[in-house]
Amino acid sequence: MDRIKNIAVVAHDNCKEELLDFIDCNREALAPHRLVATGTTGRLVEDLLAENEDAGAEHKRVRRLKSGPLGGDQQLGAMISNGEVDVLFFFWDPMEPQPHDVDVKALLRLAVLYNIPTASNRSSAEFLISSTFFDHEFCIKRGRYFEYADRELKP
């Protein structure tokens, strides 16, 4: 993992305000990194980053995927499996059933499978962003699950 990270930010509707506040409070720490987000969250993050910029200054672009229920979670999962995401901030709502719960579970499964540092709430996000590894190169070790993919098949 390079010093400049590819950071995915996702939030369910009831958690968007908290994620936006986290991003606003950690604007400086996130500035050198590349952000990717699902649908509405991406638009809200772009708007947040633009509103506090000087007039005429170009604000940070966020790579926006589809909305989670429309396939954004699956797009993000594919990015994780292709090694295109280094860190995941996913503020998910444990109290509200989601119409795409299976996609959410699949996304979280891939984050664990590929050993991606993941924060699911404000406290874990603050711990993660304050880590000494956040702004340095870091080697993610391949998990034991890769033995399955590398196994020798017998005819």
Rank of each mutant, 00 (worst) to 15 (best):
M1S: 15
M1C: 14
D2R: 14
R3W: 08
N6D: 07
A8E: 07
A8G: 12
V9H: 04
V10C: 09
D13P: 08
D13I: 10
C15W: 02
C15R: 15
K16W: 03
E17G: 07
E18H: 05
L19C: 04
D21F: 06
D24P: 02
R27F: 02
E28K: 13
E28L: 13
A29L: 15
L30S: 03
A31G: 00
A31T: 15
P32Q: 06
V36K: 14
V36H: 10
A37Y: 09
T38I: 11
T38Y: 10
G39T: 11
T40H: 08
T40K: 03
T41G: 03
T41S: 10
T41H: 05
G42N: 03
R43I: 09
L44H: 05
E46N: 07
D47I: 05
L48I: 01
L48C: 09
L49G: 06
L49I: 05
A50C: 03
A50F: 09
A50S: 13
D54N: 11
A55I: 12
A55W: 11
E58F: 13
H59E: 07
K60T: 14
V62N: 01
G68A: 11
L70M: 14
G72N: 00
G72L: 02
G72S: 00
D73K: 01
Q75F: 04
A78C: 06
M79Y: 08
S81I: 07
S81C: 15
S81P: 00
N82M: 11
E84R: 00
E84I: 03
V85W: 05
D86T: 01
D86Q: 00
L88E: 04
L88H: 04
F89N: 06
F91V: 02
F91G: 07
D93M: 10
E96P: 00
D101L: 08
V102Q: 06
V102K: 04
V102H: 06
V102T: 11
D103E: 08
V104R: 02
V104Y: 00
V104D: 00
V104S: 03
A106R: 08
A106S: 02
A106N: 08
L107H: 01
R109A: 12
A111M: 02
A111V: 06
A111W: 05
N115V: 02
T118Q: 00
A119N: 06
S120M: 11
N121C: 10
R122G: 02
S123E: 06
S123R: 02
S124C: 13
A125Y: 05
E126D: 12
L128Y: 09
L128G: 04
I129V: 15
I129Q: 15
S130H: 14
S131N: 08
T132A: 12
F133K: 15
F134D: 11
D135G: 14
H136T: 13
E137G: 07
I140W: 11
K141E: 15
G143D: 10
G143A: 09
Y145S: 13
F146C: 02
E147N: 10
R151G: 01
R151T: 02
L153T: 01
L153I: 13
K154F: 08
P155S: 15
P155E: 14
